[in-house]
Design a protein around this nucleic acid. Structure first.
Lengths: 197, 197
DNA sequence: TAAAAATCTTAAACTAGTTCATTTTTTTTC
DNA sequence: GAAAAAAAATGAACTAGTTTAAGATTTTTA
């Protein structure tokens, strides 16, 4: 069977944890929706009810909230082979407090809430897939937030740069500041300082 | 069938997401180990390989890491009806960087790695249980760390106090500081200030 | 390709939280 | 229940990161 590039990407992602037959692959793919987002367009805005979870096959998006002062706090940059969305809103149907905005023209595969439920009925193996996916996400999330806690902003910057060298070059310094958790001004100082070495 | 108190507690916890037959309940309980920890004793120490995941049926424990300066960062207080352990170490068999210390005499039910794997074979419904448990944990974890980000230490303290009034009275101010992410001295100042109102 | 918009840089004054040192209070232990 | 240990309070000097403001550079748009 011949699959398109984006389908190969998601099937490879899934095959990390479960094996699917050809039939199951086709069934799975039939439950997904292809979505394109232009640079600067929103995939989701605060107040929306998240009706999809997304897998990125191309591009880059930033996921963020605005605090009471209107300052953005970026919780992740989602690039190829990443899953994103607002799980909480997707699960509870409550309005999200997130914005998801493309920073490059992007291509995604989305699964709707209805199809997500259907998936577990049709291919129960996906309970296992999501069990492991959520387990791993939880672990890396906990590790990250626990690790970051005692680092200075400078250390967090160096770590990000080392860990995601490909992402650093695709985003603005301002957005990076929003992710690291500092002001753009201080981000600028840190970068100047680190590069001077 | 007559169950002991701790077993009723864990069965109720599980029944939030899946229904078990009598036989499955008994099978499940047979895979668990009863564990007691005295106040000030460690359930886990950095360097150990986590061979259990725990459900607390009585008492209170603190889960923490030590940063490079030896300062404790408390990631959770686990009381009755909570799950705890180090998922990462449990999953990967790598040494943990956590300490789990009882702050009161405590009673737990533990599931070993072998029995955890066995559980999915014997009662596949548990894939679903853990899928939903991890999904919800992930959501609340993300929500908590995202929400906390723009709050001052004082606001985080007030929030904790409001959200977990029962826990506040069971822990020391010093441990609370380790959870809030500030020094005990500053914690003391905040409490004095807040109570003065 | 010129004008407008957004981002980045630099610097000075400021603040939330730390550090260190000392004293008081509470809890633990024998 | 006295002595020892741990936790809490208080204060002064300090630092990482913020705020505000203004100019320089880069990117976007028409």
């Amino acid at each position: 069977m011949h699959y398109k590039k984006s389908h190969i990407l998601i099937l490879n992602n899934v095959s990390r944890f479960i094996d699917l037959t050809e039939l199951e692959k086709q069934k799975y793919l039939s439950l997904l929706t292809e979505i394109s987002v232009k640079r600067k367009a929103f995939l989701m805005q605060a107040g929306d009810i998240a009706s999809y979870e997304y897998f990125i096959t191309k591009g880059c998006l930033k996921v963020y909230t605005l605090d009471d002062d209107g300052a953005p706090h970026i919780s992740m940059f989602a690039v190829e082979d990443y899953w994103t969305g607002d799980m909480a809103s997707f699960m509870t149907k409550e309005p999200t407090s997130y914005f998801i905005k493309a920073t490059e023209d992007s291509e995604l595969l989305g699964i709707s809430r209805a199809n997500y439920e259907l998936l577990f009925q049709e291919i129960p193996k996906f309970e296992r897939f999501y069990r492991i996916l959520y387990h791993k996400s939880l672990i890396s999330y906990i590790r990250r937030s626990n690790h970051g806690i005692s680092l200075t902003a400078e250390e967090r910057y160096i770590e990000f740069k080392t860990k995601y060298p490909n992402i650093v070059n695709r985003i603005t310094q301002k957005d990076l500041a929003g992710y690291i958790g500092i002001t753009p001004e201080f981000m600028s100082k840190i970068i100047t300082k680190v590069n001077r070495r």
